[in-house]
Design a protein around this nucleic acid. Structure first.
Length: 553
RNA sequence: UGCCCCGUGGUGUAAUGGGAACACGCUUGACUCUGGAUCAAGAAUUCAAGGUUCGAAUCCUUGCGGGGCAGCCA
């Protein structure tokens, strides 16, 4: 029952809470996104944390939309978020909630606070509130409306709700302490007037609660035990506690952890939105995006993301996780499940001069999984091999085909390069080779050894497909730290190969199918552009390449 | 500069007053019909100074460094 994995500080807090019976043994977490953008891998970390806790402690997990700002929120985002959370496998059962459904209750709570003399209607403009808030080192100035009577506040607040005042003309503020060293406690705004249509409430409301006021109430109403959020809300916790304590209602515990930062990408919704809106990428689900939908289209699996979240861990210090860890997580997963196939991306024709006819050879589908079985591949006189697998003047250590040299064709024969055919410009157009009939794969007739094995496809049977090679979106580790971050977009982040040659067994592949193109990487059939007539493959991640590394020295 | 949080190999995390460990990455080797996978080995770590203690990554003090906060965003 006990997990062997090391526990992060949040698990330790929960263990302690269970030991002291703080919540009657209950554990109830939630994931509270604002529907103003698509979810990204940082959210995935949070989802895995929150759902993982509920799962590990036999607790519950809610999905709740924190939709308190009608100006930024859209139904499209709600739908994408639900899809992404489900895809990740975080099971919220029937508990999908909306903060906007609690507006009436929140209003009542606000009236209570007014009656207690703990909240007041303020006529200061946004500009005036800012000016009277003070600074980091100086206290603020109390609003001239701070001491209105309870009756007047009640009347004004009701009329705010009725729509008697224009947008921005009044606010409801908590009466706390204008001199607090924590600026969040300097009479924070609880309600603002916004004559805007809400994606779910329509025009029912023209006053909307702010995050600080609403969030604790949402957690309280749902009976959340551990309200887990990111570090930037640490300074808000005293306010979270203040509202709940003044109201004397059920009071969950807020716990903060460090958000995920990934190297060579950006994570803020603002920047992600800009990449989409300004057309730097092909939508929120562009495979180069760190969004969950982008990762899905890119070929990442939920399992790999869960494993990644586990590897990253949970702590309170700001950190930059190396994207190599994500790549490890997906390789590790796909290595076990991806069917191995052969595809030639940048072809060079090979003619086997002493071979006639054709035959079927047996190939293993996945050496890591014998249950994946084998398949037959057709060998013919004319083939394509990868252009990079032949070199006229090879550097030291090159293990592939060279003039006069031998190499094994995967699952087939050992061939020897007899002649290099070039066009008028000196470009290699064809390799004329001879094969050794005694070296057929698995025949055991020859124990000849060669240094290398290369992949190939039959020129007669291979079909054409588009292959999209992706690389990291940015050229620098931390683009968000640059003022002109858009200048660091990697111009090589997408390389489209229009006519790659793919082995025939992939002809009927469906969107989402995953494969390993031997010696090259993991690929999946694109869910957006692929058609039965013209398949499109996305490269999820390359295979580790020791040779490329050696060459790079 | 006020308040809050945080400093452990290159990166991310663990060690909760008692031999600084795990993972990724990196290096080297073995094996290999994928220069993959696998296996083996290796380099590399407690921000600093004082203090408490038989003993400090851990507790205390100070300093230094990083992050957050002055939206009617979340």
């Amino acid at each position: 029952m006990e997990k062997e994995k090391p526990k992060n500080f949040i698990y330790e807090i929960i263990d302690e809470d269970i030991r002291t019976n703080k919540w009657g043994g209950r554990v109830h977490t939630r994931f509270p996104p604002e529907p103003n953008g698509y979810l990204h891998i940082g959210h995935a970390k949070s989802i895995c944390l929150n759902y993982g806790i509920a799962r590990d402690y036999n607790g519950k997990f809610n999905l709740r939309f924190d939709d308190t700002n009608p100006e930024k929120e859209e139904t499209e985002y709600v739908e994408s978020i639900i899809e992404d959370v489900k895809w990740l496998g975080a099971d919220f059962e029937d508990r999908i909630f909306y903060a906007s459904d609690y507006f009436e209750q929140m209003y009542k709570y606000a009236v209570e606070l007014i009656k207690k003399g703990k909240a007041y209607v303020c006529d200061l403009s946004a500009e005036e509130i800012r000016k009277t808030r003070g600074t980091l080192t100086e206290p603020g100035i109390e609003s001239p409306y701070r001491n209105r009577t309870v009756e007047e506040n009640l009347d004004l607040f009701e009329r705010m709700r009725k729509g008697e005042f224009p947008t921005g003309s009044k606010t409801l503020r908590a009466k706390i302490d204008m001199a607090s060293p924590n600026l969040n406690l300097r009479d924070p705004v609880m309600y603002r007037i916004l004559h805007a249509e809400h994606h779910r409430q329509g025009n029912k409301w023209c006053i909307y609660p702010t995050y600080d006021w609403a969030h604790g109430l949402e957690d309280s109403i749902e009976g959340i035990t551990h309200s887990i959020c990111t570090l930037e809300f640490e300074n808000h916790r005293p306010l979270y506690d203040w509202f709940l304590d003044e109201l004397g209602i059920y009071h969950p515990q807020q716990i903060e952890f460090a958000r995920l930062n990934l190297s060579y990408t950006v994570m803020s919704k603002r920047r992600l939105l800009q990449l989409v809106k300004d057309g730097y990428v092909d939508g929120w689900d562009d495979p180069r995006m760190p969004t969950i939908s982008g990762l899905r289209r890119h070929g990442f699996t939920p399992e790999s993301l869960w494993n990644f979240a586990e590897l990253v861990g949970v702590a309170k210090r700001d950190a930059m996780t190396d994207i190599a860890l994500l790549e490890f997580a997906i390789r590790d997963d796909l290595n076990k499940r991806a069917r191995r196939v052969m595809a030639v991306l940048d072809p060079i024709k090979v003619v086997i001069t002493n071979y006639e006819g054709e035959e079927e050879l047996e190939a293993i589908n996945n050496p890591e999984d014998s249950s994946a079985g084998t398949r037959k591949i057709k060998f013919t006189k004319e083939l394509f091999i990868e252009r990079a697998d032949f070199m006229e003047e090879p550097p030291k250590g090159f293990k592939r085909l060279i003039p006069g040299g031998e190499v094994r064709l995967r699952y087939a024969y050992i061939i020897k390069c007899d002649e290099v055919v070039k066009d008028g410009n000196g470009n290699i157009v064809e390799l004329r080779c001879s094969y050794d009939p005694d070296t057929k794969s698995g025949s055991g007739k020859s124990n000849k050894k060669v240094k290398g094995t290369i992949h190939w496809v039959s020129a007669k049977y291979a079909f054409n497909a588009e292959v999209r090679l992706y690389d990291r979106l940015f050229t620098v580790e931390d683009p968000a730290s640059k003022e002109n971050w858009l200048d660091y977009i990697n111009p090589q982040s997408l390389n489209i190969i229009e006519n790659a040659y793919i082995e025939p067994s992939l002809k009927d592949s469906k969107p989402g199918d995953i494969f390993q193109f031997e010696r090259q990487g993991y690929f999946c059939v694109d869910s957006k552009y692929s058609t039965p007539q013209k398949l499109v493959f996305n490269r999820t991640v390359t295979l580790k390449d020791g040779w490329a590394k050696k060459k790079g020295e």
